[in-house]
Design a protein around this nucleic acid. Sequence first.
RNA 1: GGGGACGUAGUUCAGUUGGUUAGAAUGCUGCCCUGUCACGGCAGAGGUCGCGGGUUCGAGCCCCGUCGUCCCCGCCA
Length: 616
Amino acid sequence: MQRTHTCGELRAEDAGKSVVLLGWVNRRRDHGNLIFLDLRDRYGISQVVLDKDLSPAGHAKAEQARPEYVVAAIGKVRLRGKDVINPKMVTGEIEIVADKVRILNDAKVPPFSPAEDAIGNEEVRLKYRYLDLRRAEMQRNFEVRHKIALAVRQYLSAQSFYEVETPFMTRSTPEGARDYLVPSRVHAGNFYALPQSPQLFKQILMISGFDRYFQIARCFRDEDLRADRQPEFTQIDLEMTFPQQETIFRVVEGFLASSFAAVGISLPVPFPQITYDDAMRQFGIDKPDLRLPGLTDVKAAFAESDLTTLAIDPALPVVALRIPKVGELSRKERDDNKPLFDTRKGAKYIDDLKRLEKSFPDAVVKLRELAKAEEGDLLIIVAGDAATHINASDTKVEGRLSEREIAVYSAAGNFRVELAKKYADRHGAFAVTDAVVGAEERNTGIVDGSAAFRPIWVTDFPMFEHDPETGKWMPAHHPFTSPHEEDMDRLVSDPASVRARYYDLAMNGLELGSGSIRIHRQDVQKQIFSALGMSEEEAKERFGFFLEALQYGTPPHGGIALGLDRLVMILAGATSLREVIAFPKTAKAIDLMVDAPTPVSDVQLKELHIRTALKS
RNA sequence: GGGGACGUAGUUCAGUUGGUUAGAAUGCUGCCCUGUCACGGCAGAGGUCGCGGGUUCGAGCCCCGUCGUCCCCGCCA
């Protein structure tokens, strides 16, 4: 049985054609002697009519049909009468008058109907993933995903990038995330690791002379899950030789604009840029959401004596966070918001400006002005708590933000994000995304995405982070990131002041990807390892192959990796990666459909030279 | 590792202060129906109240434990 058309393509101009449609029964409406079958496939839904008078046999078959049966309808396309046109369906002007119906396969009553829009239970959805994936919304998400990946491949290929595959079974590198391990049968007691990213392979491809590499690469990290984190995920990974930071930005902007265009959305380039320090000052976070106004420094609004009275540490910033159109908060709302604010590092906030106004009317007038607050805006002041001043240690580096400054900014920044989520229906800034998502299928042509999708480059991250527990300096990123040349001499004397040639791409408050200009000189790479407290033997043991490769004429190189899943998630208007990964895992990293992981037989374990520590 | 929410019919949920036979919607089954498109009408079936233990004359409801799903913190170079 061959179909002549899909269930989504027949239109008024096809009237009169003899057609064969194959699909799932989406719904059956039985009027006795007249039966309607809605046939569904990936492309859409078409109505099939069975008239007992015209086709008693077909009618009899249609009577047996049930939801999710796979059926063939053979008949003629007919224009519907004016009064029975369904304007909600793209195929609503026609119907198929079938003279034959064949049931190709029956179906058990499904635990939920793929014809419904909203399904609640994640457990059931994941167990019967094939039914969930039949839903139009999921089909659309994967259409978006496919188009994005295809556009990326086409764009990068046109820019001379080669797609090269790198191994899944590789070497464990104990830094960073926990590895997924694969035991070796041949080499007793030895393990491969699944890659957390193709990082070193792509750098070696640069050493190999590939010049420009990319890969839509699967990565694996054995860490606890979140809505935006799965244990295996896909990155758009790329690397190129002789790049400036800006070279890489232009490439990424190019393929993103091209991917967005592929799903009917225009995205203006180039993207704005901000340094890490400025991002912290203006947004209190290293992945700013530009859909809402940033923070404003309002210390100037207060007299020194005001700050003393309010128990505000005058050495730390005083910032206002503003969310438009949220309005005054009630006492109850303010109480409910309290747990959303992080006071742990000595930040405090004032969210009742009315009360503040009574004692400090001048300051409030001034700070409203500074924060450009309009009538109906929610305005909250965040500052350092003078009471925690005495005990707090603070490492202050000239020209960089101190830890306590960051504490105030990030408390404000996180609070801003939490409140923005909570009051989304009042400020409406997030609704723009929903309006743009799916624009293509509404056939509205190219839609302006500049308000809904707000990318921003974040640059000049610090090279090291101080670990208060071990007292060691840790790489803020991976240890192959090149420091700024002019900061190199402070590597040992003043690591906190060293900036990295590292950059993030954030979009709508989500980290979409990160990259860097890499170290291409062996001596520098060794210095960095040593600055991280890695002995020479240790470095050789873990990265000897790489240090060796660096000695054979390594070109300057750099690159980036973008989360494909997260990108598609934003474009699909989804809030969980599970909506854009065909077979995702639960929060405990279980695949409910295939039921993995499972124990394995003793025979298998023995072959792999493995004994588990579990009591049986 | 920690915190929070949830778990009752196939599904989504309600279930009062602990009190008779646990409800609704939807789905499902049967019958009726020639213009529906979330078709409609009538009738019916459907329950290990996640699991285990405890308190009580009596537990869906209270207590302890446990399992699962989701969200968050830690973690994710």
